[in-house]
Write a protein that binds this DNA or RNA. Sequence first.
DNA 1: ATTTCATGTGTACCGTTGTACGCATGGACA
DNA 2: TGTCCATGCGTACAACGGTACACATGAAAT
Lengths: 207, 207
Amino acid sequence: MDMGGKPVVRRARRFDPKRRERILDAAIEVIAEHGVAGTTHRLIARAADVPLGSLTYHFTGLDELRALAFTRLAERLSRAYAAHFDGVRTLDDLVEAVTDMVHGNVGTDAREWAVSYELYLAALRDPALRTVTEEWMRTSRTVLERFVDPDTARGLDALIEGLVMHRMLSTAPFPRAVTRAAVARAVQPLPGTDAGRTPTHEPEGRP
Amino acid sequence: MDMGGKPVVRRARRFDPKRRERILDAAIEVIAEHGVAGTTHRLIARAADVPLGSLTYHFTGLDELRALAFTRLAERLSRAYAAHFDGVRTLDDLVEAVTDMVHGNVGTDAREWAVSYELYLAALRDPALRTVTEEWMRTSRTVLERFVDPDTARGLDALIEGLVMHRMLSTAPFPRAVTRAAVARAVQPLPGTDAGRTPTHEPEGRP
DNA sequence: ATTTCATGTGTACCGTTGTACGCATGGACA
DNA sequence: TGTCCATGCGTACAACGGTACACATGAAAT
């Protein structure tokens, strides 16, 4: 007969390699949804479909978990960023590619951009994250330097950042033409100086 | 004789108009220091030198308090922003003024910029804050439109945002010359189109 | 087949936080 | 001067979150 005691439905143990990675992905997801502020062990655990204790087993604490999640995100973004500029040959291609990126016609979701801002802000306070942002910014600039000189790349990189952010925040429509014009100017040689000199558009390779 | 009972040192009541405003300023301070995530009633109370209960008396909850603090900040930033461009007459002045702003040679502290990014991020999730960001971005663009056409202003505004952010995050030195060159290009007319046409530099006034 | 231990699972504990609430007091106004 | 209520003050409480930990189990090594 049923004794009325709780069944204690202990979930069957699972053979689950990849769990670590899945947790990190879930963490990124949760951060995207709730922000760093609203990110908790329990939320991540539910998103990753693992018990709470699993998190403290695989990671020393929430700090480490966050840092690793951000690192993973940065690597993913770096790859997507580089890939996005693969077909670019001319300066016009570049302008178009950047415009596409800003307007989201690209693999990288608006969601993921939001998380990267979470990363920036977190890095402002947590020195451990500075490495990650530093590396990610270096990567993006390096990609751009395949097409323009380093100084121009810096400016262009900053412009992209600002454009994406404004587009995410602004409810008013953001015409493509405006973006394209801004980008075009950023890569335009500056008359009267040689700061805008472009090294022609050879991807790389030495003579 | 001393009965050993706790003295119960109830602080004297204070006559304290302005308390509301002081709390809001304290909140901004705390957000700057600890981020939105680390901002609590108790931290704000300590910073404002008021008892905990005072916060729930003056504000319905932490949400309202945050929103009002951000609003106050945005107004302050708007004034500082406008004031910074007061003396600008020529396009060269503008380039110089923007460069100064990016490099922090201006009233607005790096601290305050950081808080404004907290605001951006918070606004991404909290629709109530969208009004604030919307207004603040409109203001900054309006200021720039005193010197350049609206489309150029949009691009320049985004560029400023990105430059400030990169400078805050980057540990590597960020040469003024690079910033100035980027800004100069952003306000430069784009050859071959009339997108860069400037309405000369008359502040305002109709014929 | 046996052992082992890395990995998996559930839960308890303790500090922190948001918020409610009871009581105090002295400017403001009659 | 007397009253009153807006404002000030301290504390309680319930919820939540990070982390520790005791126990389970099965893949791999022997």
